[in-house]
């Protein structure tokens, strides 16, 4: 008999153990990327709030954020946004058009688009991260 896992992440570990499939992994990754994006959105909002102090305060905030590390982190952000966006479109398409049968194929199509997007992102963002001007 299956022994349910305990602990804070028990139910998620149960899902993965009992149904280790593309649908489960994409569901879990959607949850994780979503939570990362919520944290990022609040940080983004917080940084934008510096505009209350006027142009000089806002520009000083932005200048502090233009470091090689933040540009590298932005590449990770693009991967997180890209996954959440593309998988979200897949989930919506499956729900609205009842495309339950090809849902796995749609997932891999979304992942191919994500890889292409990430190659473009690396080409654009990497030089910026190592440019002395930013």
């Amino acid at each position: 008999m299956y022994q349910a896992k305990t602990g804070f992440f028990g139910m998620y570990r149960d899902e993965v153990s009992l149904n280790p499939d593309v649908g489960t992994w994409s569901w879990l990754l959607h949850r994780i990327t979503g939570l990362i994006l919520v944290l990022y959105a609040f940080m983004h909002f917080f940084a934008l709030s510096s505009s209350v102090g006027g142009a000089s305060t806002f520009n000083a905030w932005l200048a502090n954020l233009q470091t090689p590390l933040t540009h590298v982190l932005e590449i990770g952000l693009m991967a997180v946004v890209g996954f959440h966006l593309l998988n979200g479109l897949r989930v919506t398409a499956v729900d609205f058009f009842i495309w339950t049968k090809p849902h796995k194929t749609l997932f891999w199509i979304a992942m191919i688009i994500l890889v292409i997007f990430m190659v473009i992102t690396l080409i654009v963002f990497l030089p910026r991260a190592f440019s002395p001007h930013h």
Binding site: S51, F58, N59, L62, E74, I120, V124, R128
Partner: peptide, 10 residues
């Protein structure tokens, strides 16, 4: 982020 003349300020 993906424009050539990339720049953000107030």
């Amino acid at each position: 982020h993906f424009t050539k003349d990339w720049k953000i300020d107030f």
